[in-house]
Nucleic acid binder design. Structure first.
Lengths: 196, 196
DNA sequence: GTCTATAGACAGATAGAC
DNA sequence: GTCTATCTGTCTATAGAC
């Protein structure tokens, strides 16, 4: 497709989103102004509105696309597979996905309260679908006698909190590399469900 | 001490702090205006500055007092005691303390980035002192051969993330009461460190 | 101790030139 | 597609009356 020089909308759009993501993660949605975002991309403030109808939609769009990707890339449910293998795969996926997208993970959790009620309901429903997938794995393992779990719902929340916490302390180039982190978390998760 | 009628500074001060806490937790520091806080207490906006020099100090003061109380009430280190009992006590304390102060816990984590660098350093140091107490318990248990832990530092962070997560889902009057929650978390923690 | 008024900066969003 | 100018409203913090 020929495109005249100076038409950069298909590159500027992503740059606006990337700048918004970075700034929202760093300073928080409410503390970041449209002018700051525009400045980061090298635009005037008015030009931003070519790429988003308003600031709220910009935030929602980032969070929504993130949750959608999370649900799409999550290994498909395989009820016939070994629960222990499924749990290991879930933990490994969760860690990798989160370590690869620290800013998105951060705003998806921290900026929930800055969504309009309608937008919040959408994101919240997607988050519950994700949690349900882990809950189902724990249920299957419990039924198969492979796990010993006192409370499946609480354990689901506890494991997700534990795994997501990796983003609060992991720093690239630190004492542990990703494979090391994955292995230790896998170990913790398996022990917590009584699979070791 | 006699006090003339109409002088309410010693009751208004705490009410200002309570209102700020509630609003910061609900909407976020950056999204809450001094006018909102004043309105909640039934004051004009100007009167707030009798109780805090500025908005930032109000936030810092809430977080600082919270962290101080956390460190004060934490069961004293008892290196001669059984590591398993110490770990159980830590987990029970953490859960109770956090369930009793959901708003304070929430802002102490969510509003870190809205602190000035100097204030941030103070709070961060207090947080690390708290984490070090758990780390020391895990170390002692590992040395005594009571725990089997692959990485003490990572496990410290993982356990704290798991325990703190209770605030994201626990609701008074729900399916589980506090004692039930405490028991299940204790179980998860002990299994994760290989003490069961 | 609290109010009202206000200073001075900055917010989100829009209009129209180019 | 982007800029500049601007509308309209809000913000923190202060000053001075009572």
């Amino acid at each position: 497709m020929a495109r005249r020089q100076g038409s950069h909308s298909d590159i500027t759009g992503p740059r606006v989103r990337a700048a918004a993501l970075r700034l929202f993660a760093r300073h928080g949605y409410a503390a970041v102004s449209m002018r700051q975002i525009a400045g980061e991309v090298g635009l005037g403030a008015g030009a931003l509105y070519l790429y988003t109808p308003d600031k709220q939609t910009l935030l929602f769009s980032l969070m929504h696309d993130h949750m959608q990707e999370l649900l799409e890339k999550l290994p498909a449910a395989a009820p016939d597979q070994d629960p222990r293998a499924r749990l290991e795969a879930f933990a490994r996926f969760h860690i990798r996905f989160h370590l690869d997208r620290p800013d998105l993970v951060f705003i998806a959790y921290m900026e929930l309260r800055n969504l309009t009620p309608e937008n919040f309901a959408v994101i919240e429903a997607m988050r519950r679908r994700y949690e349900a997938r882990l809950e189902e794995i724990l249920c299957a393992g419990e039924l198969a006698g492979e796990f010993r779990i006192r409370d499946v719902k609480l354990t689901t929340m506890a494991l997700i909190a534990m795994l997501t916490g990796v983003n609060t302390w992991f720093r690239e180039g630190g004492r542990l590399d990703r494979e090391g982190v994955e292995a230790i978390y896998r170990d913790l998760v398996l022990k917590a469900v009584g699979a070791e």
